[in-house]
Amino acid sequence: MAKHLALEISNLNFSYGKKKVLHKLSFSVEAGQCCILLGPNGAGKSTLYSLITRLYAHKQGDIQLAGFNIQKKPLKALAQLGVVFQQTTLDLDLSVQQNLRYHAALQGIGRKKANQGIQEQLERLGMYERRKEIVRQLNGGHRRRVEIARALMHKPSVLLLDEPTVGLDAPSRQAIVEHVHQLVQDGSLAVLWATHLMDEIYASDKVVLIHQGALKAEGSEAEISRQAKTDNITDAFFKLTQGKS
């Protein structure tokens, strides 16, 4: 049975003044699929995330989230979205629980359901016992876990992660990578994960490689290596982005 598309980017163009950042970018992510967005620094990954989250508005091309056009039905589209930004977006002076309740309120979730959601998501990440701790007291890995729990509280169709493991130690990184892949296997969540760290890719993942705002390759890790005539995805990445990292 064909899975439906959770995220669809079609012919997307975007520039800062005269500088083109995204050029005719098209790709899609199915429900229940983890898509790794690979690209060197400056490839346009963060700009793409700002467009999907409607922090910037695009003039050319289309973005559909679970069938809703982000320009025409922005509120319905945004309701389908959970986001973990590159920079931490938690309020450091509030507790884990207070941060999550704030997010629940913004998503229109009442107190009772919010408490259930907080318990469910934090337990899954082994953070429920620490719900009353002030975020400032948590280490980087735990803050990331809280952000992932927050992004999933309203049960979105699409989870966006913008380099979520940057600055984390190896065990924290591994835990987050495993957790997100487990989420995809468990249900119909679609994940778009921006990174330039190859060891975060699983064989079952779809990989979208962009360079200078344009699509360079699309497929599984093995397919991209084959297309680039290289032994592995790391070599393919360097070959397709001309050695830039």
Binding site: T53, L55, L75, K76, A79, Q87, T89, G108
Partner: peptide
């Protein structure tokens, strides 16, 4: 710092 983003991506006008 980024926390404004969480507010602005909420599904409300």
């Amino acid at each position: 710092m980024g926390s404004m983003r969480i507010l602005l991506v909420s599904p409300l006008p």
